[in-house]
């Protein structure tokens, strides 16, 4: 079989292994785009990995005033978790502590249809009896008095089942600086797909992990096969001149979205080419037995 490559960058004939997740979404608005973004970034902070953060969250896209329910600038955030109960808890805590508290904010359902998860249904109690319910057609809104006026929040938001978490690509290159430039370009391209988020810092993971550890209490530990300082280990997968590896992780509402996001990331990274120090693209998997969804890199070329 001929080796795969794109623009002179070698593509490993492997696949990213992704998992079934549940997801929900909210639209956060504010008087200005700046404050909508602050609220959204705060709410989706500390939400990189569902194992330790309880969910994986990020900004899906920025919304113009025409696209939001209240005609103000907004941001749509997606939140991925294991199940509806876990997501409901995350919504309560995150929207309650990060959006309710943010000046001028309002929060609305980001996913129509589906099973409904409580949003304003729990946050309304902050109003201590002064909260006002308004039901317009099928939607119920809560108006909660706060010190800058009112926090407007929709009663519930939708649950998207059979969503996918854990699409990924690994970018291998000569130096850290070169790989970071490529990874940033890949994140920018990958983020343009609606319904897909990259939950890690700036969309990038530098500490990719493998399942298990020599320490029995740890479920995951460093991905030694891709660590340049562990070259020489029998399981190392790096060439002698590979200096750094960075990973992108994508969570998406459907298979096609994750695949398209991975495709755009792969092409953006490869477009820089070997002259920019980009050597190889790989992907993370666990042998194919843990996750139901396999994204083969050869399908993305």
């Amino acid at each position: 079989m001929p080796d795969l490559s794109l623009n002179g960058v070698r593509i490993d004939d492997t696949f990213a292994e992704a998992f079934d997740m549940a997801a929900t979404g909210v639209i956060i608005t504010a008087p200005t785009a700046k404050w909508a973004e602050i609220a959204a970034k705060t709410m989706t902070g500390f939400a990189t990995s569902v194992i330790a953060c309880g969910c994986e969250a990020g900004i899906d896209r920025v919304l113009s005033p025409e696209e939001t329910p209240d005609g103000r600038p907004g941001v749509r955030c997606l939140i991925f978790g294991f199940d509806a109960a876990g997501l409901e808890l995350q919504l309560r805590n995150r929207v309650g502590q990060c959006v309710l508290t943010s000046p001028g904010s309002a929060c609305f359902s980001g996913i129509d249809g589906g099973k409904r998860l409580k949003l304003g249904a729990t946050l309304r109690f902050f109003g201590d009896g002064h909260q006002i319910s308004k039901k317009l057609g099928p939607k119920r809104y809560w108006r909660v008095p706060v010190m800058d006026g009112e926090f407007t929040v929709e009663h519930d938001t939708g649950l998207a089942e059979s969503t996918i978490g854990g699409g990924n690509i690994l970018i291998l290159g000569k130096t850290f600086d070169q790989v970071l430039v490529a990874a940033e370009a890949a994140v920018e391209a990958a983020s343009t797909v609606d319904g897909v988020i990259l939950p890690f810092p700036g969309g990038i993971v530098r500490s990719g992990s493998k399942v298990g550890s020599k320490y029995p209490v740890l479920m995951a530990s460093t991905n030694d096969a891709f660590s340049p300082v562990l070259r020489g280990n029998a399981n190392s997968l790096l060439e002698p001149d590979t200096g750094a590896v960075l990973e992108l992780v994508m969570d998406g509402l459907d298979f096609a979205g994750v695949k398209e996001s991975m495709r755009r990331a792969l092409h953006a990274a490869c477009s820089l080419g070997p002259n920019s120090g980009i050597q190889r693209i790989s992907a993370g998997n666990y042998g194919g037995n843990l996750g139901r969804h396999h994204f083969h890199l050869r399908d993305l070329l």
Binding site: G71, A106, E150
Partner: peptide
């Protein structure tokens, strides 16, 4: 004075109905 998001939401909904 009252200029909260509720009014915009109401205006949009009423206009649609």
């Amino acid at each position: 004075t009252y200029a909260m998001p509720f009014l915009t939401i109401l205006r949009k909904w009423v206009e649609s109905e």
